[in-house]
Amino acid sequence: MTRQFDDILLGSIELFCSAAELGSFTAAATAAAVTPAAVSRAVSRLEARLNVRLFVRTTRTLHLTEAGREYFAQCRQALNQLVEAERLVTGRQSAPSGLLRISMPTPYGHYRVLPLLPEFTRRYPDVKVEFHLSNRNVDFGDEGFDLAIRGRAPADSTMISRKLEDSELVVVATPDYLRQAGTPRSPEDLRGHNCIQFALPSTGRNIPWLFHQDGEDIELPTAGLYGCAEDILGAVTLARAGGGLFQTYRFIVDADLKAGRLVELMPEYGGRSRPFCLIYPHGRHVALRVRAFVDFLVEQLRDQPARPARRQPVAP
């Protein structure tokens, strides 16, 4: 078989990835114990081979081009696989290590996962964690992610899914808003209120609110003066400012409810939830750092407080 990658080329790829991660030729050179000029030559060698620019370089900044970002994602994934292959055959998979890249929704990241990361890195100090907060679905292959957290299990059979939890939904508003607009007692009363809308990023359509009424689970379209897209935390901030009613996850507003800054509405019609799942590509050999994080997160989120029993509707 004809060799496509010699030792010099593989070394150039390693130096390129290091410069991309550290954002500096000098930092990459220090990490690899070589000169900055050696890093620059390595990148130039790759650019000549590929006939594309990988970096935009100025005297003060270093940024990947679009082609550079795509190349980096693929090269980093390939280098990680080589490291895992070596550990597998040499039996050195005793401790998780390496770069772990995770994509997660903004609210779940802020309120559920990021507060747990310090404990994870205390347990596994050789794992470097890079997280990406977004509500869009990522492409594992093109973007080089190891794991993603999403609101539903994927239909793709090439992905493994582990359910993390069912997150309870609550309808909330400020005491000031309720004093001015009145308190809704049932889902039908929402027609007279300003209900903050949130559009699902994948479809652009406003998400219906979920309730349990007359022994059935229902989805109810609502309407209001405000619409929010992409980041649900923007809608929560608006609700905290008295902008109207909003249905969101209890874990986001739990502290506000306990402090009285927000009021939970129609709890007797509540108890509905949406799931969160941890997904990653199916493979014969899953990297040890990936397995460690999956087990850690499932363990941390497994013992969630039980949702309150659904209360009976009050008489009008």
Rank of each mutant, 00 (worst) to 15 (best):
S18A: 15
A241E: 05
G23K: 14
L225E: 12
D214R: 13
I207E: 04
L233S: 02
G144M: 04
A29S: 09
R261A: 11
K258V: 11
A29W: 00
Q4P: 01
Q4R: 13
M266H: 06
V56Y: 15
G98A: 07
V171Q: 01
H285W: 03
R274A: 09
P313F: 06
I218N: 01
P316W: 07
D231P: 00
H285N: 09
A287Q: 04
R123Y: 02
A255D: 13
A42Y: 00
D256F: 04
I13N: 00
K128Y: 14
E14N: 15
G271D: 06
D303F: 00
T237V: 12
L301S: 07
Q304E: 08
K163R: 14
R179P: 08
R41E: 12
G151I: 01
C277F: 10
T106V: 13
S103F: 02
D217S: 13
A235M: 06
V253I: 00
F145E: 01
R310H: 09
R49L: 11
V286G: 10
L100H: 04
D146V: 05
S40R: 11
S157R: 13
V89L: 12
D295M: 06
R250H: 15
I8D: 12
E84S: 13
G283S: 15
A85S: 10
P275S: 15
L288R: 03
A181S: 10
G234S: 02
P305N: 09
G109S: 12
P308F: 04
G68S: 05
W209K: 04
H132K: 08
V172T: 03
G242Q: 08
R123G: 07
P305V: 06
R150F: 02
I252Q: 05
T222Q: 04
A155D: 12
E130A: 15
K128C: 12
E230D: 15
L62S: 02
P107F: 00
G215R: 07
L100I: 08
A78N: 05
L178D: 03
A239E: 00
A32G: 12
V34I: 14
T106P: 00
G23M: 15
F251E: 03
L133M: 13
T121R: 11
R302P: 00
S44Q: 12
L9V: 03
A20K: 00
A95D: 14
S97D: 09
L46E: 02
L62I: 03
R101C: 08
L100Q: 04
L54C: 03
L88E: 05
L114G: 03
R136L: 13
C17D: 07
H132V: 12
E165C: 03
E188H: 10
A315H: 08
S40W: 07
H110T: 09
Q247V: 07
E47V: 06
R311E: 15
T183A: 09
G234Q: 11
R152M: 11
